[in-house]
Amino acid sequence: MVEEQVKIINSLGLHARPAARLVKITSAYDCEVAIIKDDMEINAKSIMGVMMLAAEQDSFITIKCWGPDEENCMKDLKELINNKFYEE
């Protein structure tokens, strides 16, 4: 399992569109992905779950991936988040 803390830097935070992009990535991998914020842990293959985190700009989330392609999945997710979901 890989686990990392990431800061949300895009101005909208995990709004519908960014959340949809994130789920598109997690769904493409076989590994399981969970995101934890405060005391909530959600399945990152669910857009509803991701939005439920209500992660705003400058908040921190912890990503956990476990499964065959966990490393690549983590890499892609970090790239997406650090590139502001390619929206700004």
Binding site: A16, A19, V23, S27, K45, S46, I47, M48, G49
Partner: peptide
């Protein structure tokens, strides 16, 4: 559009 995202949510 966002309603489509909700309906496609596999986990749901």
């Amino acid at each position: 559009d966002s309603h489509l995202l909700i309906i496609d949510d596999q986990v749901l």
